[in-house]
């Protein structure tokens, strides 16, 4: 069996997703239908987008602790300005992406720990979200709602969207030269620098792209919920980090996998449904979710070791 290390990284998330899916189908045959799959996975679409955003930050060895509040903020913008006056809404969202790029620049130039900067920013985004929507409300723009509730033939929207997200980001991060350079910053910043590339620019690009995907996550979320509140996506910070790791990414070294990240997000969502179908009491659910994560990660460590042993017999 000759598999590239990248393929091995993908095997485990894919297999765990398949196993979970089989278990869910066994327990709840109703899920094995067009609407069933859509109901299972449609809330995974914004999580997948947020996971991709987190993955881009992690590919330059940084971590974004403001992901949840930022997605909440963009959700609030979507439900208010983007709906009432689209031009201003787009301007605000573009500004938010620019702010992310600026964050990347500041973190790089001042050599600040990204965890501290983004933790600080999480309060800024949270505050802005409360200012926009002091009480829950707003409405989804018609076109967003239309996209998120579209019913393509044969395959439900949630699956189509996941595949599209995975394909586009795979091309962007794994195939384009910009993607290679960004991962290079995570792998060996000095060699990228010596080769004559601007690491500031690359980090800014990675952050801007992360901001862009996080904005998409907020828009997609509002398309599903029809309206927003300032705390709507707080869980996304940890979910997105877990999704990247579950999907075969690593905290350092620019080792990330967009396809894995999307699969990781789907697996996390499915794990929640699985536990709910099992009728596990809520007191145990967080623990059980953690146990699933640990099992998958342990499997990966095991395979990593196998891989190493094959390389140096």
């Amino acid at each position: 069996m000759k598999l590239s290390s990248g393929a091995i990284r993908l095997v485990i998330p894919a297999v765990s997703l398949a196993v979970l899916l089989a278990a869910v189908f066994y327990m709840q045959p109703r899920a094995m239908s067009y609407t069933g799959l859509n109901l299972l996975f449609n809330l995974a679409v914004p999580i997948a987008l947020a996971t991709i955003a987190q993955m881009l930050i992690m590919s330059v060895n940084d971590l974004d602790l403001s992901m949840g509040t930022f997605v909440s903020f963009t959700a609030c913008v979507t439900a208010t300005f983007l709906q009432t006056s689209p031009a201003i809404g787009i301007l605000i969202l573009a500004g938010a992406i620019a702010a992310y790029a600026a964050l990347g620049v500041i973190i790089h130039i001042r050599q600040l720990p990204s965890i501290v900067v983004t933790l600080g920013m999480s309060f800024v985004w949270g505050g802005l979200a409360v200012l926009l929507l002091p009480s829950p409300g707003g409405a989804a723009p018609g076109w967003v709602r239309w996209i998120m509730t579209a019913k393509p033939p044969v395959v439900p929207m949630a699956i189509v969207a996941s595949v599209i997200i995975a394909a586009i980001t795979h091309f962007l991060v794994m195939r384009s030269s910009l993607g290679v350079l960004i991962r290079g910053v995570g792998g060996n910043q000095r060699s990228v620098e010596r080769a004559g590339w601007s690491v500031v620019g690359l980090r800014a690009a990675a952050y801007a792209m992360a901001g862009f995907f996080a904005v998409l996550a907020g828009i997609a979320l509002v398309g599903l919920t029809t309206s927003a509140d300032a705390n709507i996506a707080l869980r996304y910070t940890l979910l997105s980090i877990a999704g990247v790791i579950l999907g075969g990414g690593e905290f350092v070294g620019g080792r990330v996998s967009p396809i894995g990240a999307v699969i990781g997000a789907l697996t996390l969502t499915l794990a929640g449904s699985f536990l709910s179908f099992m009728r596990i009491s809520p007191d145990w659910q967080i623990g059980a979710q953690g146990a699933i994560l640990i099992v998958v990660l342990a499997l990966r460590l095991f395979l990593n070791r196998l891989e190493k042993r094959e390389k140096n017999p």
Binding site: L39, Y236, Q285
Partner: peptide, 25 residues
């Protein structure tokens, strides 16, 4: 008449829970 409580007090989690309840018929 079964009671389900979400593990965390979060709207996104409860939305997923409601969708699961739909699936459970």
């Amino acid at each position: 008449a079964d009671a389900f409580t979400t593990a965390e007090n979060q709207a996104t989690e409860q939305a997923a829970q409601i969708q699961n309840l739909i699936l459970q018929g």
